[in-house]
């Protein structure tokens, strides 16, 4: 007994080191194989507020450019609206609505790590929940991962675990959008079969297989494409429409029918077993 106590006293620093190391490794490795940790994320009260305060100051420097962006988008949407023959929103009855949109502002952005997360200033109080889609006026941005009362973190498409259904515009050939961690303006579209005819410059949009994003949200254009090692699928480099380094205002898309789709899929899966 005496010896054990002596041992502990003698190596107490080493034991403390090992103990704390195991804690941090657990958090790190656990989230390598699964989701972002529930607690270690910047959507909590303290970090959220500090990041928001800092962001409140820095947004003033980009107000002009941001206003211009929003005006351009409004112009594009008005063009669409007037030319569709509907000049009012009354036609959009709440029963017909499949997607509801909320707005948010990015208070923390990152794009230099293998796993990038953004933090936005909307949370559960604004009925933001996990697994909602996040887009900007130019294109797709990511998926909500964790939420707190006033903040939420977004898993960016620049994240090695990101996997989003996407397709080539005006066709029904769809694949998965992943990221190879190399460049922040390029993501990869995989699993497109080789019989599809591709041209550099083709537009990639989100596909209809996802219950998160509406179909047809722009992603980017084809930069270059190769056949993969098995020679049966393409691996396509997609240049993003979004400038991932400069993102301020975002839209959060909620699919009202998502719960129903999930429930149905789960039921099918349990019936199978």
């Amino acid at each position: 007994m005496q010896q054990i106590i002596n041992f502990i006293i003698r190596y107490k620093n080493f034991l403390l080191y090992i103990f704390l190391m195991i804690i941090s490794m657990t958090f790190t490795i656990q989230s390598h194989s699964y989701h972002q940790s529930r607690f270690f994320n910047s959507s909590n009260w303290l970090t959220g507020n500090i990041l928001e305060t800092s962001n409140n100051v820095s947004t003033y420097f980009g107000l002009d450019a941001e206003n211009q962006k929003l005006l351009n988008e409004n112009k594009r949407l008005r063009d669409l609206l007037f030319n569709m023959g509907e000049t009012d929103t009354t036609a959009l009855d709440s029963i017909q609505r499949r997607y509801t949109i909320a707005t948010g502002r990015v208070i923390k952005n990152s794009f230099a790590q293998p796993r990038n997360y953004l933090t936005i200033d909307k949370g559960e109080k604004d009925s933001i929940k996990g697994d909602m889609g996040v887009i900007t006026s130019k294109g797709i941005l990511g998926i909500i991962e964790n939420t707190s009362n006033h903040f939420a973190t977004v898993q960016s498409i620049l994240n090695e675990r990101s996997n989003i259904n996407a397709k080539i515009k005006n066709t029904d050939h769809f694949g998965s959008l992943v990221w190879d961690m190399k460049r922040y303006d390029v993501v990869q579209l995989i699993d497109i079969p080789r019989l599809v005819k591709l041209t550099v410059g083709d537009t990639i949009v989100t596909g209809g297989m996802s219950s998160i994003f509406p179909e047809g949200i722009p992603v980017g254009t084809i930069r270059k494409f190769d056949l993969n090692s098995s020679n049966s699928f393409y691996s396509i480099d997609v240049a993003l429409f979004n400038d991932m380094t400069n993102i301020k205002n975002v839209y959060i898309v909620n699919n009202e029918l998502r719960e129903e789709i999930k429930e149905l899929e789960n039921q099918t899966r349990t019936d199978d077993q």
Partner: peptide, 11 residues
């Protein structure tokens, strides 16, 4: 906590 990097900085 601020940079959403799991416990990399800590380790």
């Amino acid at each position: 906590f601020f940079s959403d990097s799991m416990a990399l900085n800590a380790a």
